[in-house]
Design a protein around this nucleic acid. Structure first.
Length: 292
DNA sequence: AACGAACTCAACCGCCCCACG
DNA sequence: CCGTGGGGCGGTTGAGTTCGT
């Protein structure tokens, strides 16, 4: 019964990948390109399942993967896309080209679910305080707007991707360079884990922490309160999204300093996501069975 | 310092989709 | 049209790490 396993389980190695295996895999992809994963173990001698090879490449070795903390802007995009698409992590990841579906899925499960639960409980309190004015637009109006926004976003994504393809289609050498960077990072960690090693997330963390602590100083909020304020819960009170964008923009701008150039071409889409009033999702759509 | 709890995230599992013969 | 196989995806696991007591 059922399908046979994708590869012969006997002799197939499992568990963490070693740098040597990574190098072999990257060399294979450099030579043959990604795809035909079934041929990888046979060709390279890697004692790994073809699926494992594909996963290792797409989630870790593939060029252009950004690691480290998610920015607030990325968090917002994930939350809004999750509300829009559900747990379609691959689809969500397509809007965040530097992040893998696995990363997004993990981040959602470990961070955002909890944060949204907090937001949810806060919004319930808020709603009970202002129950008569909680829904500013009707569902029909909201759906129409949603449809328009999806169309706009799709067009923006098409434009962004087509310009990337024409302007920046990387040569295989460039692809390999990206991958060797990944491996170099791996090797560095593998040979010796340096104390006080600077991590790529440190800048973002510093910014978030400083903003949160400033918020805390000025308002007397705790960290969660500060986060919720930055994150947009205040938009529950503020009547337009511009106010939210203003409150978040200095942080977002700082977080984006080191982002790669191609992210600029996605700005239209990102703006759409930022402009999309989260309030409506929070109250109308997102807090239901998806979050529990 | 030691220990257990909680958290993180890379990797695996199994189902589904789709191209192809 | 149907069966098969490869690739893709979402859910889950578990080893390693961090945190709290």
């Amino acid at each position: 019964m059922g399908r046979p396993p994708c590869c012969d389980k006997i002799g197939v190695k499992k568990g963490s990948w070693t740098p040597e295996e990574d190098i072999i895999l990257v060399s294979y992809v450099q030579e043959h390109g990604p795809g035909n994963w079934r041929a990888v173990p046979a060709t390279t001698g890697l004692r790994r399942c073809s699926k494992s090879c594909r996963l290792r490449w797409t989630n870790y070795l593939r060029p252009g993967i950004k690691r480290g903390s998610f920015t607030l802007q990325e968090e917002k995009m994930i939350i809004q896309l999750q509300a829009l698409l559900g747990n379609k992590w691959a689809a969500i990841a397509s809007y965040l080209p530097e992040r893998t579906d696995n990363d997004i899925k993990n981040y959602w499960n470990t961070h955002l679910k909890k944060k949204l639960k907090k937001l949810q409980s806060a919004s319930v309190i808020e709603t009970s305080n202002n129950d008569s004015k909680s829904h500013s637009i009707s569902r029909g109006q909201w759906e129409k707007r949603l449809q328009d926004n999806i169309t706009t976003a799709k067009q923006a994504l098409r434009d962004a991707l087509s310009s990337e393809n024409t302007a920046e289609s990387p040569s295989s050498a460039a692809v390999y360079a990206y991958s060797t960077e990944n491996i170099a990072r791996l090797l560095k960690n593998w040979v010796k884990t340096e104390p006080n090693e600077s991590k790529c997330s440190s800048n973002v963390s510093t910014i978030v922490n400083s903003v949160c602590s400033k918020e805390e100083e000025s308002t007397g909020m705790d960290m969660n309160g500060a986060f919720e304020s930055i994150f947009g819960l205040e938009s529950l009170e503020a009547s337009n999204s511009d106010e939210f964008s203003r409150s978040a923009s200095p942080l977002v701008a700082n977080c984006e300093i080191k982002q790669e150039e191609n992210s600029a071409s996605l700005s239209v889409l990102e703006n759409w996501l930022l402009d999309f009033e989260m309030k409506d999702y929070l109250t109308d759509v997102s807090f239901d069975e998806n979050l529990v």
